[in-house]
Amino acid sequence: MVGLSVGEKYFIQGGINQNLRSDGRKRDTYRPIFVETGVIPQANGSARVRIGTTEVIASVKAELGRPSALHPDKGKVAIFVDCSPVAEPTFEGRGGEDLSTELSVALQHCLLGGKSGAGAGIDPSSLVVAEGKVCWDLYIDGLIVSSDGNLLDALGAAIKAALSNTGIPRVHVTAAASGDEQPEVDISDEEFLQFDTSEVPVIVTLTKVGRHYIVDATSEEESQMSSAISFSINRKGHICGLTKRGGSGIDPSVISDMISVAQHISEQLITKLESEISAAEAGEDEL
């Protein structure tokens, strides 16, 4: 946890009031973002994202499975987050589990849409190989390597980058089975399907400190927050998910104000992120 003296607390709060934060940023500026893709060769897709000194790794693994009986025409996507004690000693043993669960659930809300999969960034019906019989199960794993605030935005960006780096082998159903039998499948080694990740939303967290709200809070600033709202917003400016954290209440009018700010910021973030992702992919191809 962050231990701050009274003076330091005043300094942080005063800076935010005057629109000049401790590291020289304005209230609505992000720290520099770096993206690197293909960091885990064993996964189908992976990315490392660094926002300032916060660093996360996301990996996507695809496994063939059976679609659930309720949604025979949809694949499954699951998100898990792991907090490594490397990032923070308090994550040792079972210490990181609460935060892991909180982040996994928030990411599921923000990226996967409702229970039916409607409104999700990844179209679950594109994961089906043979309806009711075979589908891809996507396992998205996040790992926090270095933690300095704003973990949710970093994880969201890393997952978006990892998905655009993901190649899923094309599957041919060789023998169509009748009834309950599982069909035989042939997994191609050469042909890969890419995801269209332009619909995957980004997450923008607005952290309320005092009377103002800021983006991309560091852990010192997060320790002074009264509440925070994470918006997941796609390219069209639609809100795909929303999570509020922190105890104190927020006036409804402030929330709608925050939404319009978040929409504005998300546009810049998406542009920035996509240029970083394509730069990372280009860099990887050269190697």
């Binding site: 885990i40 790794i57 990996s59 693994k61 898990f80 490594s84 043993g93 794993d141 790992l143």
Partner: peptide, 19 residues
């Protein structure tokens, strides 16, 4: 000292309990 393995570190994805 604490040693931990990431879920994606091995060839087959496994979700192992800590410890």
């Amino acid at each position: 000292c604490e040693y931990s393995m990431a879920n994606f570190s091995t060839g087959d994805r496994k979700r192992k309990p800590k410890g």
